[in-house]
Design a protein around this nucleic acid. Sequence first.
RNA 1: GCCGGAGUGGCGGAACGGGCAGACGCGCGGGACUCAAAAUCCCGUGGGGGCAACCCCGUGGGGGUUCGAAGCCCCCCUCCGGCACCA
Length: 826
Amino acid sequence: MKYDPSRIEDKWQRLWEEEGVFRSVEDPEKPKYYCLEMFPYPSGRIHMGHVRNYTIGDVIARYKLMRGFSVLHPMGWDAFGLPAENAAIKEGEHPAAWTYANIAYMKKQLRRMGFSYDWERELATCDPEYYRWEQKFFIEMFERKLAYKKKALLNWCPSCKTVLANEQVEGGSCWRCENPVTAREMDQWFLKTTEYADELLDYTFKLPGWPDRVLVMQRNWIGKSYGAELDFALRDSDTKIRVFTTRPDTVFGATFMSIAPEHPLTIQLAKDSGREAQVKEFIDRIVLQDRAQRTSEEVEKEGVFTGAYCINPFTGWEMPIYAANFVLFEYGTGAVMAVPAHDQRDFEFAKQYELPIVVVINPEDSTLDPETMTAAYEGPGVMVNSGEFSGLPSEQGKEAITRFSSDKMMGGKAYSYRLRDWGISRQRYWGAPIPVIYCEKCGVLPVPESDLPVLLPDIEKIEFEGGGPLKKIEEFVNVACHACGGHAERETDTMDTFVESSWYFIRYCCPKEARDPFHRGAVHYWMPVDQYIGGIEHAVLHLLYARFFVKVLRDMGYLDFDEPFQNLLTQGMVIKDGEKMSKSKGNVVDPEYLIEKYGADTSRIFTLFASPPEKDLDWSDKGVEGGSRFIKRVYNLVVQHLDRLRDVTPLRGDEEYVGTAKKLRHETHKTIRKVTNEIETRFHFNTAIAAIMEFVNYLYKIDPRELVGDLPRSALAEAIQTLILLLSPFVPHLSEELWELSGNERFVSSQPWPEFHENLALSESIPIVVQINGKVRAKIVVDADVTEEQIREMVLSDQRVKEYTSGKEVRKWVYVQGKLVSLVVR
RNA sequence: GCCGGAGUGGCGGAACGGGCAGACGCGCGGGACUCAAAAUCCCGUGGGGGCAACCCCGUGGGGGUUCGAAGCCCCCCUCCGGCACCA
């Protein structure tokens, strides 16, 4: 009999499906386990990243099933998005046709990997039955003022011809096409993520099952700063300008003010002072720069005097107001009190424009002199030149100044966040329509629920000129207002695809529910997700949006939990030749070729064995060969023993025997313990598989002549059966085949996970290492139950130990239970 | 610049709370089988020294704590990732 992966794999994939082995059921008698992997974008073919992600998830799902959990393990498609549209433009194919064809192909590929999905729960986000609920959520958010429209300067990707959210701009470039992003003023829909900034932040400390680095990245992204807001009155009018600062203790050193060029007040001030021309020139120049340019480090501090002054309420000084290129309109209040002595940016600006520098914080042990300073002093210290506050340590000064401002009604304690609201409008076709109409009389109106879904209309040709493809479709755009019956126009932007992926995991609980977005019972049973698995690249994108969405849906009464994902595993990248596997690098390995040549089980075991899931995986053709070799070795081992396994009942209890049976049982139970531990404590499948390999090596070494008689044969049967059970989550097709060959009932996939007996797993004799002055000098083997006193006797009478101790004094004796003895000898 | 993570044989990686460094796999060397090769099976494999028993060195570098450090503390170097004028 020869191992033939293609025959075996096809056979078991068919049987699993026919028998519905992985259909999830809400069984109230069982504990539930929701295992989820990030769903793929249907780009055309699966890549090694998918194989790795989904293999890790599959092992967990299969393991939990064997452990007696009611497991939900679904799969679906993140089906809206740009590539479909780009392909449509290039190939002339409809985005829907392109997408559904890709889904069909990729689904076949996933099937061939043998993943234990419940395909009855499959969903595609481009399906109206899916996005209709998203439109409903949008309307409810609109009603709660969590969705709003505003005109703003936004990130515009000229290549993708659409607006991008802040999270989708990486280092000034588009996350998808890597082209530089420019600023563009547009009227856009936003979701109010900032409303939840505090809760999103607080819960990063309540997610112990998430990797630290993801939580840290989210905290940094939210970027909460603690400080104060202070009011500065204009010299020539009643207007006050409010600034945010994290350093209220330096307010006595504020000698001028900087304001963002985009700030409406900037041009206003200039107009009033007659400097409109210069200021407008500056604003126009700065605002037009693309983001990468504007925020790059090399850009010099630059500004222009608006002609206006404000009054420092603490010193009474007249502070000139400058428009400055480094002031961000969207952060804080868009205006900054400039303290050149204690802020590097202000320092550089002051030097450039010859503005006064006043020291108000001295370091503990020295005195600063503005004349000789070459950089701002940003550290803590003691307040000076600060009126009644002089002498206070700067930390106390922060509080004192804040309290003072608050008492005098000119500001007070404040926070500021780096996080911005999520801009979700996209000027593209292949997305969920935003369910809003604009009526000439009634204004902005959400589409009534009874009219949902707002179907994405069919389209012949995708054109972008004039604000987006949907604008061209008159039947879509022109509608009668449902309120007044007059003429109205539809919103023609579609939603960011990250909106779809922000709630798909809840819909898996009840994908066919037609009357409501969610079936309460099902959602209550399955959510939250117990284990989520996916790439680190979504650390602040999808993973933040999904958390936000769940909180919003909770507050709208749909959900009764706070966080979507209990445990998160971020798998490493697949690396080849030192670089991430990617089409652009030309170093991809096509999983289909791998399945074709070696089979799914080999592909699975290679990706699992090569490194622990959270680390990067170095691709190696030889490593794949090794995986294939191991699988054949297992197959041949079991086939070799088939005759011995006939009509034999495997041992079950914890009885200890003698000779071969005893040794076999010991190895068997030790292996169960090790494999179970590795999976249970940290999903380290590489070491779990290594333990199984050791077990296989051991089984190969047994002399068949020792396997005569009922007891050794029963022990062998136990060993082989255990081997197959332990392998089942990793290489399920092979395991099913061997399970059947060795005379068992289908399916190994739904068998209980083997239990180990501690007494059998323990060694009866243990090696004790003897260190003398820190070096290993001897090893003794003792029975597991000996006392320290007995060990002491054995050690001191050991020949090798004597050689090192004769004529010397044993000054110290350290004994580590069951492990080692350490002697200090002089 | 700030915030994370990581540096272990020729390679991927083990060593879970300070206790035999290098499990397992790849590669390499040797052997068995074969007319021969592939496949398979067995043995060996961190470096150096020694006929050998053994000895010395060794987890990016330098110091420290400890009977004992890959792991803990201090300083430094390198690589990877995130953020990056956030007031």
